[in-house]
Structures are given as structure tokens and as C-alpha cells.
Simulated assay, not measured.
Amino acid sequence: MKNLQLLGLILVVVGSFLPLVHVPIIGNWNYWKVDYYLAIFCWIFCACALFSILNNRPKLVNTFAVFLLILFVFTLFAIKYQASSYFSFLPFKSWTNALAGTVKLQWGWIVEFLGALIMLFAKSKNKN
């Protein structure tokens, strides 16, 4: 359904502006503050998915939804890796792990993944 796919796309775009990571003292970060290259890729994939939705190409929509899911998983791993390597200058491994653990994921990821999953699993009524 086009409407469900558009809803999923809107959720992904809106989710990129919601808080995704909480960094102590600094505050909440959205996708742009996490990494603007990843944010640009996210928005390019969303634009391509919108083009595919408007041209009634469900296989392309599914492809870009999978690309978005892969991008989100990659971003989560990159955030955890960056948080642990950011504090690598500390002399004790326990201090590094404790401070890296203060970087928390926020609720915006739920919206991001939900939107991509809706785009992926929404089926088109037209069987052309």
C-alpha cells in the first residue's frame, strides 16, 4: 500500500531529527550530529524510496528499505565503537568501559527502525 509505505518513509525522515544518542554533558544528538555523511546517505535513500513509491515500484522500495536497515545497524555499531575508542586514552580498561557506557541510545531509533520495517513489509494491492 502506498499510504503505508509513505507513512514508513515519513517515520524514517522524522526519526532522523529525533534524539538518537545521549552524550553526557553535551546532550542529545540526532542523525546529523552523529555523523552528517550517514545522515546524507539516509536522506538520499529516503529520496530514492519516495521516487520508487510514487512510481509504483515496490521492489525498489523494499531494496531501499533494506539499505536503510543496513545503514541503521551500521550506525549503531559505529556509535558503540566510537564511544569505546573515544575513551581509549584512559589507563584502565574498566574506566574506558564505564565511560563508554555513559553514551546511551535514545528512543529515536525505534521510530527509525519502525519506519523502515513498515516500508519493507507493506504490500502493494496492485498485482501488475
Results as ranks from 00 to 15, higher is better:
residue 2 K to Q: 14
residue 4 L to E: 09
residue 4 L to H: 04
residue 5 Q to C: 05
residue 5 Q to K: 08
residue 5 Q to I: 04
residue 9 L to D: 02
residue 9 L to T: 03
residue 10 I to P: 00
residue 14 V to M: 08
residue 19 P to L: 07
residue 19 P to N: 02
residue 20 L to F: 00
residue 21 V to D: 07
residue 21 V to K: 12
residue 24 P to A: 15
residue 26 I to Y: 12
residue 26 I to M: 04
residue 29 W to M: 13
residue 29 W to A: 10
residue 29 W to S: 05
residue 31 Y to R: 03
residue 31 Y to H: 07
residue 33 K to D: 06
residue 34 V to N: 01
residue 34 V to T: 12
residue 35 D to W: 08
residue 38 L to I: 08
residue 38 L to S: 07
residue 41 F to Q: 02
residue 43 W to Q: 02
residue 44 I to M: 05
residue 47 A to P: 07
residue 47 A to Q: 02
residue 50 L to P: 01
residue 51 F to C: 13
residue 52 S to D: 10
residue 53 I to N: 01
residue 53 I to C: 09
residue 54 L to W: 08
residue 55 N to G: 09
residue 56 N to S: 06
residue 56 N to I: 15
residue 59 K to A: 08
residue 62 N to I: 08
residue 63 T to L: 15
residue 64 F to C: 11
residue 66 V to R: 07
residue 69 L to R: 06
residue 69 L to E: 02
residue 70 I to P: 00
residue 71 L to W: 00
residue 74 F to A: 15
residue 75 T to R: 00
residue 78 A to K: 14
residue 80 K to E: 07
residue 81 Y to P: 08
residue 83 A to Q: 06
residue 84 S to D: 09
residue 84 S to V: 12
residue 86 Y to E: 03
residue 86 Y to W: 15
residue 87 F to P: 06
residue 87 F to L: 03
residue 87 F to D: 01
residue 88 S to P: 09
residue 88 S to A: 15
residue 89 F to H: 14
residue 94 S to G: 03
residue 94 S to E: 15
residue 95 W to L: 13
residue 95 W to T: 11
residue 96 T to Y: 00
residue 96 T to P: 02
residue 99 L to A: 09
residue 99 L to F: 15
residue 102 T to A: 12
residue 103 V to W: 08
residue 104 K to H: 12
residue 108 G to C: 13
residue 109 W to T: 04
residue 112 E to T: 04
residue 113 F to R: 02
residue 115 G to F: 04
residue 115 G to Q: 05
residue 115 G to E: 07
residue 116 A to P: 11
residue 118 I to F: 00
residue 118 I to W: 00
residue 119 M to Y: 08
residue 119 M to D: 05
residue 120 L to E: 06
residue 120 L to V: 11
residue 121 F to G: 01
residue 121 F to I: 12
residue 123 K to W: 11
residue 123 K to T: 15
residue 124 S to W: 11
residue 125 K to V: 10
residue 126 N to K: 14
residue 127 K to D: 09
residue 128 N to C: 03
